[in-house]
Simulated scan of single mutants.
Amino acid sequence: MSPRDREETEVRRMLAGPHPPVPPDLAVRATARGRRLLARRRLLRRTGRLLALLALAALLVWAMHQPWLPPPVRITPPVEGW
């Protein structure tokens, strides 16, 4: 008998045996857990979108100030050669 046949025989024996009792409120608990998971995913998605929007707004505000340009000269250079 090959190892695969032994595994198949063992699985068939386990499936043919007595099945454990299922709690009567299993469907209710599964539904409640699914709703909690969906609500959590929805909250995480909304939070991520809000953070991305805030990051984009901060980038736009930063870019509007044009930090890559040198600061404007506050005084005029001395006039020479008159």
Rank of each mutant, 00 (worst) to 15 (best):
M1V: 13
M1K: 12
M1N: 08
P3S: 14
P3K: 13
R4I: 11
R4V: 14
R4W: 13
R6M: 09
R6L: 12
R6Y: 11
E7K: 08
E7V: 09
T9L: 15
T9Q: 14
E10C: 07
V11M: 13
R12V: 02
R12S: 07
M14L: 14
L15E: 11
A16F: 03
A16P: 05
A16C: 02
P20C: 01
P20M: 04
P21T: 05
V22S: 04
V22N: 02
V22L: 10
P23H: 03
P23L: 04
P24K: 06
A27M: 06
A27C: 04
V28R: 02
A30N: 13
A30R: 14
A30D: 09
A30T: 08
T31K: 04
T31V: 05
A32L: 07
A32Y: 00
A32S: 07
A32G: 00
R33N: 03
R33T: 06
G34N: 13
G34V: 01
R35D: 08
R35N: 09
R36W: 08
R36E: 05
R36T: 06
R36K: 01
R36S: 01
L37Y: 06
L38S: 10
R41A: 11
L43V: 06
L44K: 08
L44V: 06
L44I: 02
R45H: 10
R46M: 13
R46N: 13
R46H: 09
T47W: 13
T47N: 11
T47V: 07
G48H: 05
R49P: 00
R49G: 09
L50F: 08
L50V: 06
L50Q: 12
A55P: 02
L56D: 09
A57K: 03
A58K: 02
A58T: 12
L59V: 07
L59R: 03
L60Y: 05
L60C: 14
L60M: 14
V61A: 15
M64Y: 11
M64K: 08
H65S: 15
H65D: 11
P67Q: 01
W68C: 02
W68G: 00
W68P: 00
W68N: 00
W68I: 00
P70E: 14
P70L: 05
P72M: 03
V73S: 14
V73A: 15
R74C: 03
R74M: 11
I75C: 09
T76M: 12
P77I: 01
P78A: 06
V79T: 10
G81S: 05
W82I: 11
